Computed example of a mutant assay.
Amino acid sequence: MLTVDFDRFPVGPGDRVLDLGCGDGRHAYEAYKRGADVVAADLDDTALKHVRDMFANLAEAGEAPGTASALAVRADALRLPFPSGSFTRVIVAETLEHIHADRAVLAEASRVLAPGGRLVATVPRWWPERICWLLSDAYHEVEGGHIRIYRRRELLGKLTEAGLRTTGGHHAHALHSPYWWLKCAVGPDEEHPLCALYHRFLVWDIMRSPRPVRFAEWALNPVLGKSLVVYARKP
């Protein structure tokens, strides 16, 4: 399930891509399959092992060009171990809402981005996220949980402060907002039959991508999209 639109964030051979706060690696895999040299960075060793294994599986299955490379490394987003201008693309997806020093993270992301390079940042959208917080404290008051809710202008302002020029954006994952509202209403840790049913629907959609459902989500994203996606360029 990709949050970034790679038609609006072109990646290919010759690009050096940093997926900062890569988590399960979904965007790193897509960049690798498109032929880029990819570094997936996170502090979660378990997640990094999964990403390394998936990189190896993609290479073995021939799903990534032989000219591409992929690494998963443990790195602190506040002190990245890369020289300035190391990457032509930086992805910061669903990461900033977990970190108190988000300005410092964006400053580091901008530092390692080459002049003329592109960055994309995604965060939970304000009003769907606000409903989750109102429905359940347990949704966000957990270790490593969300510590802030972004408004669009706040994220745009922080990207500008980091020396980046925003170039556009959109919303994504409209069908996921009701799922999380339901989860929060019954309790995020509760195994409720309705949540299980909705989750099966979302998995089916991800695996099959049925055209009518994809169209419905595309149409609903401007109103109901759970994620805010903003694209930027370094002058």
Rank of each mutant, 00 (worst) to 15 (best):
E97I: 07
S69P: 00
L197Y: 11
T95W: 04
H140E: 07
H173K: 15
D37K: 04
N57P: 02
A64M: 09
H171S: 13
D42S: 01
R111H: 05
P10D: 13
L2K: 12
A107N: 08
L194Y: 09
A93I: 07
L58F: 08
A172K: 15
A68K: 10
G85M: 09
V142R: 15
I131T: 12
A196R: 15
V213E: 02
I149D: 06
T88S: 15
D102A: 09
T160D: 01
A70T: 02
L182N: 00
T122G: 06
A114V: 01
C22R: 00
N57V: 09
W181M: 10
L18M: 10
V38T: 09
E191R: 14
G117D: 02
R200K: 15
W204I: 02
P115K: 03
C22A: 15
K33H: 02
V92N: 04
G187C: 09
R103K: 13
P128E: 10
G163N: 02
L159I: 05
K158I: 03
E63Y: 01
H146A: 11
L58Q: 02
G23H: 06
A31I: 10
D42F: 04
E108F: 08
H176Y: 12
E190P: 12
H27S: 04
D53I: 10
C195R: 13
W181F: 09
S110C: 03
W181Q: 01
R26S: 12
D19V: 00
D19R: 06
R165S: 15
P128I: 06
D189H: 14
L106C: 05
P124S: 03
H173A: 14
P222D: 03
V39H: 07
H192I: 04
R16E: 14
L119P: 08
D44G: 08
R118P: 03
V4M: 04
A107R: 11
L159G: 00
L78M: 05
G157Q: 05
R111D: 02
G66I: 09
E94A: 14
Y231E: 15
P81N: 10
A162G: 00
P212S: 01
V90T: 11
A162P: 01
A172V: 07
T166F: 04
V38F: 06
D37F: 01
E141G: 01
A162R: 03
A216H: 04
V73D: 08
V92M: 07
I131M: 12
S69W: 04
K226M: 11
W218H: 13
T95V: 14
M207D: 15
Y179M: 13
Y29M: 06
R52K: 14
W204F: 14
R152T: 08
T167K: 04
I206F: 07
A40H: 08
Y198F: 13
H146T: 12
S84R: 09
P128C: 03
I131G: 08
A70D: 06
V213C: 02
A40M: 05
V90L: 00
E141H: 10
